[in-house]
C-alpha cells in the first residue's frame, strides 16, 4: 500500500533522515519506534508532504507522493494525526470535525460522519459547541483522531498519540487504534511508548538517528534483548 524507498530528508544543513525504507501493507498496523530526535516525525511529515525528501521515493498505491501537492494527499485516502494534536483551538469541536471533512462536497455524508464521531467518542458529543482549546489533552487527542477519520481514510498516520496522556487515556487511545484496525483501516503509528506500540502492531521498525536499525514482526521485537534494553526499559 505504502512503500518508502531510501528517502533522505534534510533541514538546512542537518541531514535528519539518511536513507530510510519501509513498507506498510493493506490492513496492517505498523509501528515506527525510536528515541526522541531519531526522525520519526520527520518521516511522517515527508510521507504526507509537509516536508520533501531530497532523494528516494514514496509510492502510495502506485502514486508517487512527491508529485502530489501536500493539500491533495488527503484526497488519496491518507489522513495524518499530527504530533501534539494540532486541533484548531479557536474553533468548536464540531467545526474541527467539519474541517476534517474540508475536501468533502457531500454535506449529508459529513453530517453522517460527525454523528459517527460522536458515537465513537461520546466525550466529544458532550463538548460539541465548546472551543477545542478548552478541551483536556486526552479530549484533544480524541478530537484529532476523529477529525482525521472524517474523510473515511484507508490509511492513518498517527504521530505520538499517547504523548502527555495519563496511563488510563493511553490505554483508551490504543484501544481506539485497535478498533480502527479491526474496521479495516491501515495504521502507521509513530510512538515513543514502544511497549504499547509493539503490543498492538503487526510489524515495526526501530529508528536510530535517521536510519532503520531493526525491523521485523512486532512480537519478535518485543522479545528482542536489544530492543528491550534500549526502548522498553527492561
Amino acid at each position: 500500500m505504502l512503500t518508502v524507498k531510501d528517502i533522505h530528508v534534510s533541514y538546512g544543513a542537518i541531514h535528519a533522515i539518511k536513507g530510510v525504507s519501509l513498507t506498510v501493507n493493506d490492513g496492517e498496523i505498523v509501528s515506527l519506534i525510536g528515541a526522541n530526535g531519531a526522525g520519526k516525525t520527520t518521516i511522517l511529515h515527508t510521507i504526507s508532504g509537509l516536508l520533501r525528501a531530497s532523494s528516494g521515493s514514496i509510492d502510495y498505491n502506485g502514486t508517487d507522493l512527491a508529485k502530489v501537492h501536500p493539500s491533495k494527499i488527503i484526497n488519496l485516502g491518507m489522513a495524518h494525526v499530527p504530533e501534539g494534536r494540532h486541533v484548531f483551538t479557536r474553533m468548536t469541536v464540531e467545526e474541527n470535525l467539519r474541517m476534517g471533512a474540508f475536501i468533502s462536497n457531500n454535506p449529508a455524508k459529513v453530517s453522517e460522519n460527525i454523528d459517527r464521531s460522536y458515537q465513537r467518542f461520546p466525550r466529544l458529543a458532550e463538548r460539541r459547541k465548546q472551543f477545542a482549546g478548552t478541551l483536556s489533552g486526552g479530549e484533544q487527542q480524541m478530537l484529532a483522531m476523529a477529525r482525521a477519520l472524517m474523510t473515511d481514510p484507508r490509511i492513518v498516520l498517527m504521530d505520538e498519540p499517547s504523548m502527555g496522556l495519563s496511563p488510563l487515556l493511553v490505554k483508551e487511545v490504543f484501544s481506539i487504534i485497535k478498533s480502527l484496525h479491526e474496521a479495516g483501516i491501515t495504521v502507521l503509528l509513530v510512538e515513543q511508548n514502544a511497549k504499547m506500540a509493539l503490543s498492538i502492531a503487526d510489524r515495526a521498525y526501530v529508528l536510530e538517528t535517521g536510519h532503520i536499525a531493526m525491523e521485523g514482526r512486532a512480537a519478535d521485537l518485543l522479545n528482542d534483548d536489544k530492543v528491550r534494553q534500549a526502548y522498553l526499559g527492561a
Partner: peptide
Amino acid sequence: RGMRAVSEDKEAATLMG
C-alpha cells in the same frame, strides 16, 4: 473556515486539504 484554519495552524490546515 479554510481561512480560519490557515490563520491558526498552516500545517494542520494543509493536512485537512
